[in-house]
């Protein structure tokens, strides 16, 4: 399988940082440096991702899950480390790109679906307009073509295309997530980031959206990073999983193995409590 993404020793520190930030924080301690008070949101995070693969990132609140995808999606600059994105025969050094290059990848080759639909959608414009924006950024300027593409995407994500001219506020939470997914898929990105996309939704709505995500993976061979604290989501979606605690990966491997035979005491507790 084709490699899409390779992350090496990624770190993200909020604060001024000091010499002992990394030595004094970690899974057995906390993520706040006692020396300088900086938050070590992530440290020494390494992993790779292949075409069509879903990688789960699991861990309790504050463990650094979102930090990883936010930096890869350029929402936050990385502090250290290196990340390579492989696309159409080119390698992009993600943490070294300028703003225009970041914008180009973000708007066309990556897709992001946030837990909070307000972060992923512009609530002042129609659902179709949100999808149109992504297509316009990608350089399409043909009104009818944009509209029919938006229609197809909404159909695919099971939002009634007749409602495409309504503003997202009129939609249920589940539908807002579907619009976000439609928008993310608009440019056929090879890589999708999903940050707690089903958190807070009704169980039946959650199940339908998780199904949709799996269908997309099968149909489009999209690689995905799925961030969640929900073991059920991990079990259903992720081929491989990283378990994070206080900014560090404490366990990584095939999801089935991690769930059957967790090595780290923390993971064992997580799995046990979810049974």
């Amino acid at each position: 399988m084709k490699k899409i993404l390779e992350v090496n020793s990624f770190s993200k520190v909020y604060g001024s940082g000091c010499d002992c930030c990394f030595a004094e924080t970690g899974p057995e301690r906390t993520n706040i440096c006692p020396g300088c008070g900086s938050v070590v949101a992530a440290h020494d995070v390494s992993f790779s991702l292949h075409q069509g693969e879903i990688l789960g990132i699991m861990g309790e609140s504050g463990s650094g899950k979102s930090t990883v995808v936010k930096s890869l999606f350029f929402d936050e600059p990385a502090s250290w480390g290196q990340a390579s994105f492989y696309d159409n025969g080119s390698r992009y050094d993600l943490f070294e790109l300028n703003r225009a290059q970041q914008r180009q990848l973000r708007s066309q080759r990556f897709g992001m679906v946030y837990q909070n639909p307000h972060l992923g959608l512009n609530f002042a414009i129609s659902a179709g307009g949100n999808i149109a924006e992504r297509l316009l950024v990608a350089g399409d300027s043909h009104y009818q073509r944009i509209r029919s593409r938006a229609q197809d995407l909404l159909q695919r994500t099971e939002v009634l295309p007749e409602r495409m001219d309504e503003i997202p506020r009129n939609f249920s939470g589940g539908m807002q997530q579907r619009v976000q997914i439609a928008k993310a898929l608009a440019t056929d990105p090879p890589l999708l980031f999903l940050d707690e996309v089903t958190t807070g939704l009704d169980l039946s709505v959650q199940a339908a959206i998780l199904d949709l995500i799996l269908e997309i993976q099968h149909e489009l061979q999209t690689a995905m990073i799925v961030v969640t604290h929900d073991l059920g989501v991990i079990r259903l979606l992720a081929d491989r999983t990283l378990v994070m605690k206080y900014g560090r990966i404490i366990e990584a491997g095939l999801t089935d193995q991690i769930l059957e035979d967790p090595q780290h005491a923390y993971t064992q507790r997580l799995v046990a409590s979810a049974l």
Binding site: R99, R103, I125, S126, G129, A132, L136, I146, D165
Partner: peptide, 22 residues
């Protein structure tokens, strides 16, 4: 300013799109 520098004007076209829809 950054948007002008990069000729990042898609959002102006989004406004036109919304105008035509409405």
């Amino acid at each position: 300013k950054a948007m002008h520098g990069e000729a990042d004007y898609a959002r102006l076209l989004v406004k036109l799109y919304e105008d035509i829809v409405k």
